[in-house]
Amino acid sequence: MDGWDTTTKSTVQRIPLLTTRAGPRDGEKWLQRRKEEFMALIKYMEMNKEKDNDWFRISPNEDGTKWKGKCWYVHNLLKYEFDLQFEIPVTYPATAPELELPELDGKTAKMYRGGKICLTIHFKPLWAKNCPRFGIAHALCLGLGPWLAAEIPHLVDTGVIQHKEKQVTEKQVTAAAS
């Protein structure tokens, strides 16, 4: 657990661990697994709200293999919001879900094709080691959170992404000018 800052680590440790080793194809077990996932997510969400650190919204499809939602990051008092989506792989939980930020596809080097974010080298061994105890909540906490904290300020500073409101105002300004 070396690659993360202390708050992240402490947060992760407080997210309830899962017990059921089951993927989407495992039927009843998958149901059980999903229940556990929800429990963990609820807990994590509660924790975030408690700490005024609410930063994402997700909701699954029917069978719980695809999740969609939003995530955001506040930088310089501006809220940058992105779409978030990911699928539960068949080999789940042995394989970690691949988190996607399609809006940022092609905008940063720390990203695979299709907007999948590149996780740190530490993530995969940690996930493997903690299989099946880690779930979606853990993946978000350890993966997406730190990535956003690292990348968004950089992207904003370099001007790759712009605040939406600002974009709007700029547009208005140009429109008015023209």
């Binding site: 149901l31 999903r34 229940k35 929800f38 429990m39 997510l41 609820i42 969400m45 509660e46 975030n48 709200k49 408690e50 700490k51 005024d52 650190n53 609410d54 919204r57 997700i58 909701s59 699954p60």
Partner: peptide, 25 residues
């Protein structure tokens, strides 16, 4: 762990929609 999946999903929704406690430093 006695919760139904549906209930849990709803609960999660609720949790997500609940107003976050403003935590200002």
């Amino acid at each position: 762990m006695d919760f139904d999946l549906e209930e849990l999903q709803k609960l999660f929704e609720q949790t997500q929609n609940a107003k976050a406690k403003v935590r200002l430093s």
